[in-house]
């Protein structure tokens, strides 16, 4: 792997560059996301500490770690659901410290949630149209007065929504109430809604949770397809190792809020610290099961 640090100007604020695991094809472009010494405390509890990361423009990155390691908290920091106590987040080179959750989305980060957060009383199509909200161009009064612009933009939104639903072949569900969908479909709808906001970085929090192996395999293909289609970066949290090792190009391992390893899937698989902290536990369980 070529060293991207050489080609990038060093930021004065941050003396130490995080170890980069950006794939080669993204190496000559500036990273889409950089975290420097990111951390957050909840009262006395340090949930995340000294978190450094760099994600390439079209990279699929993985964030793994045992339960309670602080993975979801990292996503919440990146999207400003929580305000970081320490550190810097650079999105496409720009400091996000003054941005709100809503502004972060407009700046290019979209996400899904571990405990699904759909607009449950609204239709599947409306959920996607809400993702398109900032790309539909008419004001409140056009809507109330039903001007030609309203009809034109709503038709365009309808077509875009249907186009996006096609990714997961969900067009037929467009009229259904989002809250009444089966679990797997809800997870997929969340991804479609996030994509509708036209992000440059997509954060997926346990996208395969509750899915069976064949659904998971399909999801893996779809994540890669989404990356290729939209040319965006994807960062995902996942407990399913076949998925993580199968599609992630760079993996970051968290334990007790601390990064304990970073590298390619092969490096992570053979990393002793990781095996001890994370995979080792699983091995033990598997042995017990045998």
């Amino acid at each position: 792997m070529s060293d991207p640090n050489k080609r990038r100007p060093q930021t004065k604020m941050v003396p130490v560059q995080p170890r980069a695991i950006v794939p080669d094809r993204d190496a000559d472009k500036s990273p889409i996301l950089e975290c420097h010494h990111l951390g957050v405390d909840f009262g006395g509890l340090t949930a995340v500490n000294d978190f450094n990361l760099m994600i390439g423009r079209t990279e699929i990155a993985g964030l793994i770690g045992p339960n309670g390691a602080g993975k979801t908290t990292v996503f919440n920091l990146l999207t400003k659901v929580y305000q970081p106590t320490r550190g810097t987040i650079l999105l496409d080179g720009a400091d996000t410290s003054r941005m709100t959750t809503e502004q972060i989305n407009r700046a290019g980060i979209a996400r899904t949630f571990q405990n699904i957060r759909l607009f449950g009383n609204l239709s599947v199509e409306d959920n996607v149209k809400l993702g398109l909200h900032n790309h539909i161009e008419y004001g409140m009064w056009s809507g109330v007065l039903r001007t030609p612009r309203y009809w034109r933009e709503e038709r365009r939104a309808h077509e875009s929504a249907m186009e996006l639903l096609k990714i997961f072949e969900m067009q037929d569900l467009a009229g259904a109430k989002a809250g009444s969908l089966p679990y797997g479909a809800q997870r997929r709808l969340e991804i479609v809604r996030a994509l509708a906001t036209n992000p440059s970085l997509l954060l997926l929090d346990e996208p395969a949770a509750g899915m069976n192996p064949s659904e998971t395999a399909e999801l893996m293909d779809n994540i890669v397809r989404i990356r290729d289609l939209f040319q965006i970066a994807v960062m995902l949290i996942e407990h399913d190792m076949s998925l993580v090792m199968g599609i992630c190009e760079g993996i970051c391992v968290l334990n007790f809020g601390q990064v304990i390893a970073k590298g390619t899937p092969d490096e992570i698989k053979s990393d002793l610290v990781v095996i001890e902290a994370y995979l080792g536990r699983k091995d033990k369980k598997q042995k017990e099961a045998e």
């Binding site: 999207t79 659901v81 996030a194």
Partner: peptide, 10 residues
């Protein structure tokens, strides 16, 4: 329906 999700889609 979900304030945090609404914020997250901008």
């Amino acid at each position: 329906d979900n304030r945090i999700a609404a914020e997250s889609v901008g």
